[in-house]
Amino acid sequence: MTLSVSAGQAVDLRVQPVEEVLDRVERSLQVRLLPDTVVRKRRSVGARTDRDTWVRVERRSPDKIADQGWNGTECAARLESVAQPTWQGCVVWRDADEPVMWRADETGLLPAAPVGSAVLNEAPELPNEWWEALNASLDALAAHRTRRVATPDTDTITQELVTESIRDVFSGHFDTTVQRWMPAHADLNWANVTAPVFSLFDWEDWGNAPQGLDSASLWASSLAVPALADRVRQERRRDFESRDGRLMTLFACSKILGPYAHPEDPRLAPARRVAEQVIEELQAG
Rank of each mutant, 00 (worst) to 15 (best):
M1K: 06
G8L: 08
G8P: 10
D12N: 00
Q16W: 04
Q16N: 01
Q16R: 05
V18G: 11
V18R: 11
L22C: 05
D23E: 10
D23N: 08
R24N: 14
R24V: 15
R27E: 15
S28M: 12
S28G: 10
V31E: 11
R32K: 08
P35H: 02
K41D: 09
R43M: 11
R51Y: 14
D52E: 15
V55G: 05
V57T: 12
E58N: 15
R60N: 06
D67Q: 13
N71M: 09
R78G: 11
L79F: 08
S81A: 08
Q84A: 07
W87Y: 15
Q88A: 03
Q88V: 02
C90N: 07
V91R: 06
W93H: 00
P99Q: 00
V100E: 10
T107A: 02
G108S: 13
G108Y: 08
L109H: 07
A112N: 10
A113V: 10
P114K: 00
G116S: 10
S117W: 10
V119H: 03
L120Q: 14
P124K: 09
E132K: 08
L138N: 04
D139N: 00
L141I: 03
A143N: 08
T146P: 11
R147M: 14
P152N: 13
T154C: 09
D155Y: 04
T156K: 04
T158V: 02
L161H: 05
R167H: 07
D168M: 00
F170K: 03
G172D: 01
G172H: 01
H173T: 08
H173W: 03
T176S: 06
T177P: 13
A184H: 13
L188D: 12
N189L: 08
A195H: 00
F198A: 02
D202M: 01
E204M: 04
W206R: 03
G207I: 02
Q211M: 10
L213N: 04
L213Q: 06
S215M: 03
S215K: 01
A216G: 04
S217A: 12
L218V: 01
A220K: 01
L223G: 15
V225Y: 02
R236I: 15
E241H: 11
D244M: 05
R246F: 02
T249V: 01
A252L: 11
S254Q: 08
P259H: 03
P263G: 04
E264K: 12
D265K: 01
P270A: 07
A271S: 02
R273D: 15
A275S: 14
V278T: 13
V278N: 08
E281M: 09
A284Y: 00
G285M: 02
